[in-house]
Nucleic acid binder design. Structure first.
Length: 646
RNA sequence: GCCGGUGUAGCUCAGUUGGCCAGAGCAGCUGAUUUGUAAUCAGCUGGUCGGGGGUUCGAAUCCCUCCACCGGCUCCA
């Protein structure tokens, strides 16, 4: 007998060789069916793997990431089997589970897979799933593995196997399809009830653009048809919230072929929105001792040589601008920090002056490959809500905490209720990749870790993800429909103070090197507005939205009263539009609802006589009528309440 | 940049295997209507069918090329 320890700490005895699957089978049939994968002593494994010695066991269901992972990984094998059946001779790259579903990279030789083939593959997958073949694992020696794929003629698998150690190699066989795979997998494909292949894309073998491009097929599967339907509905919802669609509909921003790809232009309403966000952040930052500055859009090449950006990114940037007479070379700025460093240097700094905090809404230009551009989230010209804090090493943690506070306020103000942060540290085994001495790094890393825990942040820590010049903390928010976006970032930098030879005079009358913090709570205005649009589906909070109220007279007879209402509200600093079109009231309501204006005021004979307005809240319908003054107070107090919460 | 897809009026989309002056709805303009909580009616305007080149008696439709956009790959100071 062996002893199995369960997550709740209980220990039970089972015969040696019992499989994880047999354990829930002894409890209830429902449980046994719901279990998808297991882990033994913390290592995930198949449910059919016999347990040979005492171990702690955890079972995973669909609700667990590990469960979904096994489900989708098995699905990718199922897809591969279907593809091999339909397209014999296909070679297979890798086919992992991903966050939402799975993919498989395949090489079809001369054949081209198009979207039209997807439903065919889906059908075959469903058919195979119904047949319910088991997933059979077997361990193979390296030479056996090489022989198998040599015979099959699959050079991709051979390349993968060559990198593996003998004795750790396993095959999984599903029906006619045998694949090199570590697992774990479901015991069989029967639980896969709903299949949807989503898209086809090119993907370089092993992510290397010098190597062959394979065809990547993305798909997703579920244990219930209904779950697939819900997922597709969610995708539809995401499409409705797409900031590119909403940005056009709400007339916030635009692109022009004539101006160039990746160069957004802010239309009047978008500009209003952005200005409001900027003033809000300026106000918050003023409270934290930031000084607002402005710097030019170009700087001499020498500046970027000094900063190190030229060496690292010069080839992949917009190329230098030359002056016609003097032959000077300027670069469009990809960052604001070198300018701020020069400003720091403009006068001697004492330890008493620090921290110096310079903030700038600085527009920067970065060359992005044409295939990379995407709405407002990936552009070639954008404005960072940038700031650089020059501080003493002993102030680092404190400054870090304050930046976290600012980010908290912003996320709260904009109703991002759920967010996590990632701490990126250097790779301890590759210290030579980084600039700065051990001691500074340790201090900075500890400062971040302590600041994050002091502020009660939910964090994940990733080693090896730091920038070469310092560790960083990145913020990820979850939007209203559960998608994750990376927004703000805080980064420690030892590199630039060194390169620009920044100094301050210490209490000891000696010169010291300040530490720099780069930080951008929004990240960029463009990206942030995109995320905010998708988060709110275009229904911005009242304080932020470009137009707060629109007045709709029931007919032209009440235009004069309506005009009075509009004038009164605008005088109260309530941003009010007037819809004086000669249309029926139903039509005006519909049009303005679609524009997502928060309040629609309907005025007719009754309202004119009593000096009231009939209030309709966007998306919520008729709210009844109230005196005009009362409505103005109501709006003002709603805005004040929102602003106070900021 | 690479793979695949898409490109018809300001917007959303029709346009059969190449064949009469290229269509619809919405928007816009003009007029009628004077409207009570998500689309009043009528008329009109608007497109060298993404750009260029080619095949053909004839091209939105077939071919080549360039551009932009979409889904990915890669990258993100």
């Amino acid at each position: 007998m062996i002893q199995i320890t369960f997550p709740d700490g209980s220990i039970r005895e089972y015969p040696r060789g019992t499989t994880p699957l047999e354990i829930p089978q002894g409890i209830s049939r429902n449980l046994a069916e719901a279990v998808l994968a297991a882990s033994l002593n913390g290592e995930t494994c198949d449910l059919t793997r016999p347990i040979m010695q005492d171990a702690s066991l955890k079972l995973y269901k669909w609700e667990d990431a590990e469960g979904k992972h096994a489900f989708w990984h098995t699905s990718s094998h199922l897809m591969a089997e279907a593809i091999e059946t339909l397209f014999p001779g296909t070679k297979f790259g890798i086919g992992p589970a991903i966050e939402n579903g799975f993919y498989y990279d395949i090489d079809l030789g001369e054949r081209v897979l198009t979207e039209a083939h997807l439903s065919e593959i889906e059908k075959k997958m469903t058919e195979l799933a119904r047949a319910g073949a088991p997933m059979q694992r077997r361990e193979v020696s390296k030479s056996e593995a090489l022989e198998f794929f040599t015979n099959k003629g699959d050079e991709y698998k051979l390349e993968l196997i060559r990198d593996l150690q003998d004795g750790t190699i396993s095959f999984y066989q599903l029906g006619t399809f045998t694949d090199l795979c570590r697992g774990p997998h479901l015991p069989g494909v029967a639980p896969i009830k709903a299949v949807k292949l989503l898209s086809i894309a090119g993907a370089y073998w092993r992510g290397d653009e010098t190597r062959k491009q394979l065809t990547r097929v993305y798909g997703i599967t579920f244990p219930k048809q209904k779950m697939l339907e819900e997922y597709l509905q969610m995708l539809e919802e995401a499409k409705q919230r797409d900031h590119r669609k909403l940005g056009k509909e709400l007339e916030l921003f635009m692109f022009s072929q004539k101006i160039g790809p990746g160069l957004p232009m802010w239309l009047p309403r978008g500009t209003q929105l952005r200005n409001r966000l900027e003033s809000f952040l300026k106000k918050v930052q003023a409270g934290y001792g930031y000084d607002q500055v402005m710097t030019p859009h170009i700087g001499l090449k020498e500046l970027w040589v000094t900063s190190g950006h030229y060496a690292k990114y010069g080839k992949d940037s917009f190329q230098p601008i030359h002056t016609p007479q003097e032959g000077e070379e300027f670069l469009l700025k990809p960052m604001n920090c070198p300018f701020h460093c020069e400003m720091y240097k403009s006068k001697p700094r004492s330890y008493k002056d620090l921290p110096v905090r310079m903030a700038e809404f600085g527009t920067v230009y970065r060359y992005e490959q044409s295939g990379e551009l995407h709405g407002l989230t990936r552009v070639r010209g954008f404005t960072q809500d940038d700031a650089h804090i020059f501080c003493r090493p002993d102030q680092l943690k404190d400054e870090f905490c304050k930046v976290i506070d600012i980010i908290f306020r912003i996320f709260n103000a904009l109703e991002f209720k759920e967010f996590v942060a990632q701490i990126s540290l250097r790779d301890p085994d590759n210290k030579e990749k980084y600039i700065g001495d051990d001691e500074s790094w340790d201090k900075a890393e500890n400062a971040i870790i302590e600041a994050a825990s002091e502020k009660g942040l939910r964090t994940t820590t990733v080693r090896g993800e730091a920038a070469f010049y310092g560790p960083k903390l990145d913020f990820m928010v979850r939007d209203a429909i559960g998608r994750k976006w990376q927004l703000g970032t805080i980064q420690v930098d030892y590199n630039l103070p060194e390169r620009f030879d920044l100094e301050f005079t210490g209490a000891d009358n000696q010169k010291h090197r300040p530490v720099m913090i780069h930080r951008a709570p929004f990240g960029s205005m463009e990206r942030f507005v995109a995320v905010l649009l998708e988060h709110t589906a275009g229904k911005f909070p009242l304080w932020l939205t470009p137009d707060q109220v629109v007045v709709l007279p029931v007919s032209e007879k009440f235009s004069d009263y309506a005009k009075k209402v509009v004038g009164y509200l605008n005088n109260c600093d309530i941003r009010t539009l007037f819809d004086d079109r000669n249309e029926k009231i139903g039509k005006k309501i519909r049009d303005n609802e679609l524009k997502k204006i928060p309040y629609l005021l309907i005025v007719g004979e009754k309202e004119e006589q009593s000096g009231t307005v009939s209030v309709r809240r966007q998306g919520e319908g008729d709210q009844g009528s109230m005196p005009l003054e009362e409505f103005a107070h109501f709006i003002q107090s709603e805005v004040t309440r929102q602003m106070e919460a900021l």
